[in-house]
């Protein structure tokens, strides 16, 4: 699974994406953020305020409790500021 990062989250992590294979227990977006944070302190710090993290699964905006299922691409990013 590819996990994409955008804007300040991308900058704080110092990378555009990770290629990961989460274990079965990682079911939701929230689980995925927990799991990535447990492996990487920088990730845990950057995502500490969960209210500032938005998510998409395969080009669809989702909530943190949405199951990741067999997603091929998950994206994590800050609240949007376009327009």
């Amino acid at each position: 699974m590819k996990v994409l990062y955008f804007a300040w989250l991308r900058e704080r992590l110092g990378r555009d994406f990770d290629e990961v294979s989460p274990p079965d227990g990682v079911r939701s977006i929230a689980d995925l953020i927990d799991w990535l944070g447990a492996k990487d302190e920088g990730f845990a710090l950057a995502t500490a305020n969960r209210e500032l993290i938005r998510a998409a699964i395969d080009d669809e905006l989702v909530e943190h409790d949405t199951p990741i299922g067999s997603a091929s691409t998950v994206a994590l990013f800050p609240p949007m500021t376009g327009g």
Binding site: F6, A7, W8, A56, L61, A75, F77, P78, P79, M80, T81, G82, G83
Partner: peptide
């Protein structure tokens, strides 16, 4: 658009 289209301003 402001809150649902994935754009970020710097």
């Amino acid at each position: 658009l402001k809150t649902t289209a994935p754009f970020w301003k710097k």
